[in-house]
């Protein structure tokens, strides 16, 4: 399946994490907050400049800078239609 970077996800859209490519420390931190392969992510807001953006992960809203989100590969969510549109 085609994957794309999380930072290209637009507000209101959901995707499923395919791979977390960040360097070790950041990868671990992202996993601690629930970003593991298979997890659902929804982009819920972008700051005035578009960077950082806020993502709904495991029921919590987390802000990530574009450079960090670019290292997370996501794929279209199979359960997208079941996810309520949150934004």
């Amino acid at each position: 399946m085609d994957t794309f970077s999380l930072n290209t996800l637009s507000v209101g859209h959901s995707a499923q994490v395919a791979q977390v490519c960040a360097a070790a420390a950041m990868r671990r931190r992202l996993m601690d907050i629930g970003l593991i392969p298979g997890a659902q992510v929804t982009c819920v807001a972008k700051s005035p400049s578009g960077d950082p953006a806020a993502y709904l992960i495991c029921g919590a809203v987390i802000a990530l800078r574009s450079a960090d989100a670019a290292e997370i590969q996501v794929q279209p969510s199979p359960a997208a239609e079941l996810q309520p549109a949150l934004a």
């Binding site: 960040a22 360097a23 907050i33 809203v61 802000a63 990530l64 800078r65 450079a67 960090d68």
Partner: peptide, 10 residues
């Protein structure tokens, strides 16, 4: 700049 994760609480 290092990576950072900021939680936006409810």
């Amino acid at each position: 700049p290092s990576s950072f994760v900021l939680e936006l609480p409810p």
